[in-house]
Design a protein around this nucleic acid. Structure first.
Lengths: 156, 156
DNA sequence: GGCCGCCCTGAGCAGAATGCGCAATGAAGG
DNA sequence: CCTTCATTGCGCATTCTGCTCAGGGCGGCC
């Protein structure tokens, strides 16, 4: 979908001030309320706004450790079956099929470095994963920063 | 912060049905409206609910390619300076300092595989990055799936 | 030039939700 | 027993939402 600057401004407003109402946004942007409504509906329908939900932050409730695990899987099962098995583990936040030496990459949260070992053991215990190699995130500078990209897309 | 099952149920409700109002949530959960309000306020104040904003999805507006780039940086500058330089590039969605052979890991979005090359060139042009090695996400099975972890934390 | 579709606009209205305050209740812990 | 804190139910004024409608501006198309 093509987005324009008004779309980006709307998203930015609702991002910066989450108490923003559609009505007030329309006042600030000096457009009709129905316009803001229509833009939001259109972006939601087209998936540009993928979700608008309270995002729990694992760091804030006891899972400060984040690791990226590169997994070599049991090829007999297939990627989808393995990702389903991984989806059953709550500590697994994210799974991609990737290019390169490994088959899958998973983002994993844990209570501590030793707890990470426990989670990795659970992953290996699924029998779906043959080998894993992990990289620990020592410091997260930023994440989920998609707004600048939306604005870049809006400019052309 | 410690979360209980009510907290998790509240987050689940607002995640599954984003048109949910505080009032209706209180009706469904059979608690007072003020309680739901208080829980949401508390979770927001403690960062358990990190953000509650429209999340733009790059795939939906022209950036279907996602890659994870492992960067070796110019040590003279330091991680923070480099991450600031990367923050100026809208295609860079996420940056972590990581353990292992590389210094930083960045999640990068791009319009296509060849466009990814363009973005990598921009990254290298900052002079902050000495070497990069990328892994392309061929298929995203799921991501941002933090709710199960919150529920696990709520159970104990 | 004239027609058409699309989007934005301003307005109105009923219904619903919010923000706020308050006193009472209940459970937990010292 | 007393204190503390979360929860509860209630009410009120204010605000927002969902919905609808007719009108106007604009670009594309024949």
């Amino acid at each position: 979908m093509r987005v324009d600057e008004l779309d980006a401004k709307i998203v930015r407003l609702f991002t910066e001030e989450q108490r923003m109402s559609v009505l007030e946004a329309s006042r600030i942007l000096k457009v009709a309320r129905a316009t803001v409504q229509a833009r939001l509906d259109r972006m939601t329908a087209n998936g540009v706004i993928a979700h608008w939900v309270p995002q729990p932050e694992p760091r804030a409730f006891g899972f400060p450790v984040v690791a990226f695990c590169f997994l070599t899987i049991n090829q007999d099962l297939g990627h989808d079956a393995v990702s389903r098995a991984l989806a059953a583990i709550p500590e697994v936040i994210e799974v991609h099929t990737v290019s390169g030496d490994s088959d899958l990459m998973a983002r994993v949260a844990a209570r501590s470095n030793s707890d990470l070992q426990r989670v990795l053991d659970i992953i290996m215990a699924t029998k779906a994963v043959v080998r894993s190699s992990s990289v620990i995130a020592l410091n997260t500078h930023f994440e989920g920063r998609t707004l600048p990209l939306l604005e870049a897309a809006a400019r052309g």
